[in-house]
């Protein structure tokens, strides 16, 4: 019921903006599924996160609720942390260690060379 009311009150500009962002997210999602390497997928997921930030900002702006900007800012922070965490996990295999025996041996591996195999 609430969802229907929201859909009716959404203005033309909000609707078209959300539609365009949704299409962009779909394109990025296709790359995330298709992506030949892990980095393509990671970049696609990062783009989807950025689009989510934009959607939150847009909806908050058109709905007249500036508190949505706080949520968008938080989403941007967490998006960055998540990307760095996944990148680190791909590079080192662990989340917390640096300079230990396991990560040292992985550190010397050429990751691009591994991917070209």
């Amino acid at each position: 019921m609430l969802l229907e009311i929201n859909l009716i009150t959404i203005s033309f500009w909000t609707g078209s903006g959300l539609l365009i962002l949704g299409l962009a997210a779909l394109v990025a999602f296709a790359r995330a599924i298709q992506g030949p390497t892990a980095f393509d997928r990671l970049l696609a997921i990062n783009i989807i996160g950025t689009i989510a930030v934009l959607v939150v900002c847009l909806y908050g702006f058109f709905d007249g609720r500036p508190a949505f900007l706080d949520i968008a800012l938080l989403y941007a922070f967490i998006n960055f942390i998540a990307t760095i965490a996944v990148l680190r996990f791909f590079r080192f295999g662990t989340l917390g260690e640096e300079g230990s025996a396991a990560s040292k041996s992985r550190e010397n591996d050429d990751i691009w060379g591994n991917l070209n195999d």
Partner: peptide, 15 residues
Amino acid sequence: SAFILHAIIFGLNRT
């Protein structure tokens, strides 16, 4: 999450 970011980048021992 700020400390988690620090640990991810600078290593758990430094954090």
